[in-house]
Computed example of a mutant assay.
Amino acid sequence: MIRIAVVVGSTRPTRRSRQVADWVLARAQERGGAEFGMLDIAEFDLPLLDEPLPPSMGQYTHEHTKAWARAVAPFDGFIFVTGEYNHAVPGALKNALDFLYAEWNNKACGFVSYGSSGGVRAVENLRLIAGELQMADVRAQVALPFATDFRDYTAFTPSQTAEGQLGPLFDQVTAWARALQPTRE
């Protein structure tokens, strides 16, 4: 069975990403077609990248890096839930991605973003990062503007449009994760 992780991409105390990630995970589990889990980077307490060697060498020295690697490695694909911070990906998510290399390789990824413009600029930033980490990013994405998908800009209340965009995202991430499976074996 293909395993897909919903990655909570912010550690900010007032983050919206956990609300959104919980919604994504619940809808994914209802839909089926893969085994879905969650990775919340806030639970790993990663410092600013502190490994002495580049992650591409795979020689992790710190226990927090090894724990993060053990959590990421079993998944075949990822759905990154990200806010848009200053027209880019949140620093905590970028840092979490930078800690590892082989654990991301030849895996599929998709994006659910939020922000004043739906977080689309953060996703464009993530697509560049995914390419360098040898992840295959899918076309379908869900963009959640604060004005339409968050009551009073705080409480997540997904629109029907957002609900409808999840299906193609799940389908594409699952299909690409399955298609890339031979490259990971």
Rank of each mutant, 00 (worst) to 15 (best):
M1P: 14
Q165A: 05
A140L: 01
Q165R: 14
A67E: 07
R151S: 08
D50Q: 09
L128I: 09
R16Y: 07
K107T: 00
A67H: 07
P55S: 04
N105L: 03
D149N: 15
Q141C: 10
V120M: 14
D149G: 02
G37L: 08
A42C: 08
P52E: 13
A130V: 01
I79S: 07
E84I: 11
D137N: 15
A147I: 06
G37F: 07
W104R: 03
F170Q: 02
T157P: 03
E43A: 15
V6K: 06
Q29F: 04
A5W: 13
T174S: 12
A162G: 12
A147M: 08
A155S: 12
G32H: 13
G33D: 03
L128W: 07
G83Y: 06
F80P: 01
D137M: 04
A73P: 01
P182Y: 10
P90R: 05
T11K: 09
F146Q: 05
G33S: 05
F80S: 00
A71D: 05
R12A: 06
W23N: 08
G115S: 13
R127I: 05
A73V: 04
D22K: 10
W23S: 07
T82Q: 07
A177F: 02
D98S: 02
T183V: 10
D137K: 03
S116V: 12
C109V: 10
D22W: 04
S117R: 13
L169V: 02
G91C: 02
V89T: 13
T183P: 00
G37H: 09
T157F: 02
D50I: 02
L93W: 11
E124R: 14
E43F: 05
L128Y: 10
Q29L: 06
M38A: 08
F44N: 04
A147G: 06
H87Y: 15
I79Y: 09
A136Y: 09
V81S: 07
R121Q: 13
L25M: 00
R18T: 08
D152K: 07
T183E: 11
V20I: 14
P145N: 12
M1I: 12
G131L: 10
L25E: 00
E185I: 04
Q181R: 15
Q19Y: 07
W176I: 12
L133P: 08
V89M: 14
N125M: 06
F44H: 12
A21M: 06
Q29Y: 03
K94D: 05
T82S: 15
R12H: 14
P145A: 12
V173T: 06
G37I: 08
P145L: 12
M135I: 06
A67N: 12
A28R: 10
S159G: 08
I129C: 01
R184A: 01
A26I: 00
L100C: 04
V72T: 11
A136F: 09
G33C: 04
R12I: 00
A73E: 15
G115C: 13
P90F: 05
L133C: 09
R139G: 07
R3T: 09
S159E: 09
A102M: 08
N125V: 05
D45E: 14
P13W: 12
